[in-house]
Simulated assay, not measured.
Amino acid sequence: MSSIYDFSAKSLAGEDVPLRRFEGQVLLIVNTASACGFTPQYKGLEELQQKYGDRGFSVLGFPCNQFGAQEKGSEAEIAQFCSRNYGVTFPMFSKIDVNGAQAHPLYAYLKGEKGGLLGSAIKWNFTKFLVDRSGRVVSRHAPTTTPESLAKDIESLL
């Protein structure tokens, strides 16, 4: 596979979503969790979605329970949590693994394109991958990187 557009993922509602649906957009792909110290980043992610969504940008959220079991809820519970607490409007997908033998193929691809400081494995929730309009993974950002701090990078790709 040569770009992120060759993958698909299930939405929280169970719909199979081809990522080709986002072709031509700048994307911020994030593994999320509802009970993490970084969970308040949902607010910043939604602010980016609101600020840049009409210019061809989207956040894509991928809940993951691999780090401290911080995403125990069902898909319906995750959707309700994100909507109720953070007003999330960006696409959220079904819970996935991002590391190991059962890692979602999209995450295997993302990690292969941009490794982290200590190798390719995702170290924690809210690791972020910035993707340009052609589907190329431009950068990878640690969980400690706030969504707001990525605004200039996003603007440069829009």
Score class of each variant (00 low, 15 high):
residue 2 S to V: 12
residue 5 Y to G: 04
residue 9 A to D: 06
residue 13 A to S: 14
residue 13 A to Y: 06
residue 14 G to F: 04
residue 18 P to E: 07
residue 19 L to R: 01
residue 21 R to K: 15
residue 22 F to M: 05
residue 24 G to S: 12
residue 29 I to G: 00
residue 30 V to C: 08
residue 30 V to F: 05
residue 31 N to I: 05
residue 32 T to D: 14
residue 33 A to P: 04
residue 33 A to V: 09
residue 34 S to L: 04
residue 37 G to L: 06
residue 42 Y to A: 02
residue 44 G to L: 11
residue 46 E to S: 06
residue 48 L to A: 08
residue 50 Q to S: 15
residue 50 Q to C: 13
residue 51 K to E: 15
residue 53 G to M: 11
residue 54 D to M: 13
residue 54 D to K: 15
residue 54 D to I: 09
residue 56 G to C: 11
residue 57 F to N: 01
residue 58 S to F: 07
residue 59 V to Q: 04
residue 59 V to S: 04
residue 60 L to P: 03
residue 63 P to H: 01
residue 64 C to V: 07
residue 66 Q to M: 07
residue 69 A to W: 07
residue 69 A to P: 04
residue 70 Q to G: 10
residue 70 Q to Y: 02
residue 72 K to F: 11
residue 74 S to H: 12
residue 75 E to S: 14
residue 75 E to L: 08
residue 77 E to R: 06
residue 78 I to H: 00
residue 78 I to W: 00
residue 79 A to L: 09
residue 79 A to V: 04
residue 80 Q to G: 08
residue 83 S to G: 13
residue 85 N to M: 11
residue 86 Y to N: 07
residue 87 G to F: 05
residue 87 G to T: 11
residue 90 F to S: 00
residue 91 P to T: 02
residue 91 P to M: 02
residue 92 M to E: 09
residue 92 M to K: 01
residue 93 F to Y: 04
residue 94 S to M: 07
residue 95 K to C: 03
residue 96 I to G: 01
residue 97 D to N: 11
residue 97 D to R: 03
residue 97 D to P: 08
residue 97 D to I: 01
residue 98 V to K: 00
residue 99 N to A: 07
residue 102 Q to C: 09
residue 102 Q to I: 05
residue 105 P to V: 12
residue 106 L to N: 01
residue 106 L to C: 05
residue 106 L to S: 01
residue 110 L to K: 04
residue 110 L to Y: 02
residue 113 E to T: 04
residue 113 E to R: 14
residue 115 G to W: 11
residue 115 G to F: 09
residue 115 G to N: 12
residue 115 G to V: 08
residue 116 G to Y: 11
residue 116 G to V: 11
residue 117 L to K: 13
residue 118 L to V: 13
residue 119 G to Q: 11
residue 119 G to P: 06
residue 120 S to H: 10
residue 120 S to G: 04
residue 120 S to P: 06
residue 121 A to S: 15
residue 121 A to I: 13
residue 123 K to P: 03
residue 123 K to D: 09
residue 124 W to P: 00
residue 125 N to K: 06
residue 126 F to S: 01
residue 127 T to N: 13
residue 128 K to F: 04
residue 129 F to D: 02
residue 129 F to C: 10
residue 132 D to P: 10
residue 132 D to L: 08
residue 132 D to K: 10
residue 132 D to E: 10
residue 133 R to Q: 13
residue 137 V to F: 09
residue 137 V to T: 10
residue 137 V to C: 09
residue 138 V to C: 05
residue 138 V to W: 03
residue 138 V to I: 14
residue 141 H to P: 00
residue 141 H to M: 08
residue 141 H to Q: 13
residue 144 T to F: 08
residue 144 T to M: 12
residue 145 T to H: 03
residue 146 T to Y: 05
residue 151 A to L: 06
residue 152 K to D: 15
residue 152 K to Q: 15
residue 152 K to L: 14
residue 153 D to Q: 15
residue 154 I to E: 00
residue 154 I to F: 02
residue 157 L to T: 03
